[in-house]
């Protein structure tokens, strides 16, 4: 287990360094984009004096290094500053909008794992048969168009032409759920409202699927490719020679060694979905971080831009850490990495 702790510690350290780097980069990039944030925030009718006061309050006239120093000092206290767009602390805004996005990405991630991997296993086990061809078609479709295009197609087909799923939003208006965590799946359960829970589930299927489609295809294709390679390994022939059931050979003997590369890709896709979610959210009017993100970028709302990017990067890094730890757990070579005795 010590090597597991080692993996975790080293990933935490590198992630921390990456976050510092990201914070610098976005901090400087946001400031070199042309346009005066104070002027944009106050509008064209504000007097030059008002603009000057706000610039002072935002410390915009200090050198950029000093500004960054203030930013880091605030960040250490968990303060990302005030959004000029909403006039509220950026942390409050993020706490309001992030859960919807995380919920969407999380469900899409589950779809990738629980649809993509089994499809890959089936395609490898029955290679050359119809299920294999179907999986190839799905993965082709998945990569042939970006997820927001699939969002539009799925919405048109399954919400508009065939009204099976709701067309937009997180939950029907008829439900009023007291906000506790911001995560609807948690809040509806806390409220003891199972119908609202099911309704939220019904709403998330289409956008999550649109977001997950390319990942499902990739996970399936990669799992298939690795398993087909694994099927040629001597230990599979040995398993066959012992008459282990074919299903068990597929699900255990061939799948487990193939899981490691698949998991790596799923981790990357999972993180990429955080970015793709922006457009899918726009299509499905999903009240997530995307609307907020777009609005603050257009208004050059510096604190909000930096805060949003930082949070998304942190989520990205956390997902990668989880994947690395999972791989370490699955791969006995890492878990039992021998040390010189």
């Amino acid at each position: 287990m010590t090597s597991l702790v080692r993996v975790l510690l080293s990933r935490l350290l590198t992630s921390f360094i990456v976050l510092i780097g990201v914070s610098m980069l976005i901090f400087f990039i946001a400031r070199v984009i042309p346009g005066d944030p104070a002027r944009i925030a106050l509008g064209p009718n504000a007097s030059p004096e008002q603009v000057l006061v706000l610039r002072e309050a935002l410390r915009l006239d200090e050198s950029i290094i000093v500004q960054y120093g203030y930013f880091i000092a605030d960040l250490a206290r968990g303060d990302l500053g005030i959004s000029l767009y909403t006039n509220r602390p950026v942390t409050t805004d993020i706490a309001q909008f992030l859960p919807a996005t995380l919920e969407l990405v999380f469900v899409a991630g589950l779809m990738m794992i629980f649809i993509g991997l089994p499809l890959g296993i089936l395609a490898a086990r029955y290679r050359g048969r119809w299920i294999d061809h179907t999986v190839r078609l799905i993965s082709l479709l998945g990569v042939s168009a970006p997820s927001f295009v699939w969002a539009v197609i799925l919405m048109m087909t399954f919400a508009f032409i065939l009204p099976v799923f709701p067309i937009a939003g997180r939950i029907s208006d008829s439900y009023t759920i007291p906000v506790a965590s911001g995560f609807l799946f948690i809040d509806t359960l806390l409220a003891g409202n199972l119908r609202a829970f099911a309704n939220a589930g019904w709403h998330i299927i289409l956008p999550a699927f649109a977001l997950a489609l390319s990942g499902i295809g990739q996970a399936a294709r990669l799992t298939r490719a690795n398993m087909v390679e694994t099927y040629d390994k001597p230990y599979i022939e040995m398993a066959r020679s012992y008459g282990f059931p074919e299903k068990r050979i597929a699900n255990r003997y061939a799948f487990r060694p193939s899981l490691i590369p698949s998991l790596t890709i799923i981790g990357l896709d999972f993180a990429a979905m955080l970015g793709n979610a922006f457009l899918v959210e726009a299509v499905f009017a999903w009240p997530g971080l995307s609307r907020y993100g777009v609005a603050v970028i257009l208004r050059k709302d510096l604190n909000a831009i930096v805060g949003t990017v930082l949070i998304i990067s942190a989520a990205f890094l956390i997902v990668n850490i989880i994947v690395d730890v999972l791989i370490a757990i699955i791969n006995p070579r890492i878990r039992h990495s021998q040390r010189p005795k």
Binding site: Y235, S241, Y242, Y253, R256, P257, P332
Partner: peptide, 18 residues
Amino acid sequence: GTKMSMIFQDPTSSLNPA
């Protein structure tokens, strides 16, 4: 695996690494 069984050429790669 019951009445007949087989031993393969390379023992290490014939056992499942996982």
